[in-house]
């Protein structure tokens, strides 16, 4: 299992080997002794039991030796863990935003990505932000995990040591599509990373000329498509396809009413999703984006939804 994909793998795996190794010896030893006793002292072979009340020396031995063994185990667990909490000063900082049910990674220059792109052999610190409920960012290949808790500034860091594309999972149960809150961490060479970072910055300065593409990029970066499809498939939220300009029945408070899906409705539903929930969909699942998405981006989203037809 040791891939050395991150700087932590070696020490973490060592803790596994030490603990599982000691445990296996004890497990096999105790089980073998137990089976031996049952066979050797079967009532046919040994019709009369020898009464032994106990033995204080033995009690001491099997208290002290396990104590030493578990302290050794603790030590290896701690040694592997300690560096996880000490972030190098020169680490690249990335904001990792979790929401039901997608990830967004925001870089220093404002670049947003639904994949985590990191350079090889550079320390990367992830500042973990949740927009709604608890999540946990888990990269099995790197042996790291930390909860993404709303209202708290949790963090984690790592140094990727091997090029490749690694799974990122949400490990803290977060609702209906928890199992789909997955993405990738792409580890790329430093030069490639630098140019990706610079290109991204440029793209932000000069957004795509194609407004449909720009709109799609915006909803992707903000995690909308985790719950709203663009092809008519019903996910947790209504699909964006073909809704613009139509009449929909929504629940406002406890009352049902019919609204037209227009610009005002879309923008308000993004900012305050629980005001008017489309009938047959669940209230309370979507976080409000008031203050999270700029007016400019709102326009792009509205344009994109319009482009998906009426």
């Amino acid at each position: 299992m040791n891939t050395n994909a991150s700087n932590f793998v070696e020490q973490v795996d060592l803790a596994f080997y030490v603990i599982i190794g000691i445990s296996l010896i004890l497990l096999i030893g105790v089980t073998a002794v137990m089976i031996y006793f049952v066979v050797r002292y079967n009532k046919k072979k040994n019709p009369t039991a020898t009464q032994i009340e106990g033995n204080n020396k033995l009690e001491l031995i099997w208290t002290i030796i396990p104590t030493i063994l578990v302290l050794i185990m603790f030590y290896y667990g701690w040694v592997g863990y300690e560096p996880m909490r000490n972030v190098p000063d020169d680490a690249i900082e990335v904001k990792a935003i979790g929401r039901m049910w997608s990830w967004t990674f925001e870089y220093d220059n404002g670049l947003k990505s639904d994949k985590l792109i990191v350079p090889l052999n550079k320390a990367v610190k992830l500042n973990l932000v949740s927009m709604d409920v608890n999540h946990a960012l888990y990269i099995p290949a790197f042996r790291i995990k930390e909860d993404v808790v709303p209202g708290r500034n949790n963090f984690m860091w790592f140094e990727a040591q091997k090029l490749g594309s690694y799974d990122i999972f949400c490990a803290e149960y977060c609702g209906q599509r928890h199992a789909y809150m997955i993405t990738k961490c792409d580890v790329i060479p430093v030069e490639e990373y630098n140019s990706w970072y610079a290109e991204g910055a440029q793209a932000l300065a000069n957004p795509s000329d194609d407004p449909v593409e720009a709109g799609y990029n915006t909803i992707k970066a903000n995690g909308c498509i985790a719950c709203h499809s663009t092809d008519g498939t019903k996910l947790v939220g209504p699909s964006f396809k073909g809704i613009f300009g139509t009449q929909r029945v929504v629940v406002t408070g406890d009352e049902e009413r019919t609204v037209t899906v227009d610009e005002a409705y879309i923008i308000n539903s993004i900012k305050h999703p629980n005001d008017d929930v489309v009938k047959d969909y669940m209230k309370g699942l979507m976080p409000g984006y008031d203050g999270q998405i700029s007016d400019e981006d709102m326009d792009k989203i509205v344009f994109y939804i319009k482009s998906l037809g009426e």
Binding site: V12, A15, I19, I20, G77, G80, M84, A136, K145, A171
Partner: peptide, 21 residues
């Protein structure tokens, strides 16, 4: 014993970070 020993795995900090949840 298997349950207990694997409990030691998840009691160890670094190993737990990997297999927690």
């Amino acid at each position: 014993m298997i349950g207990g020993f694997t409990g030691l795995v998840v009691g160890a900090l670094s190993a737990d970070v990997h297999v927690h949840d």
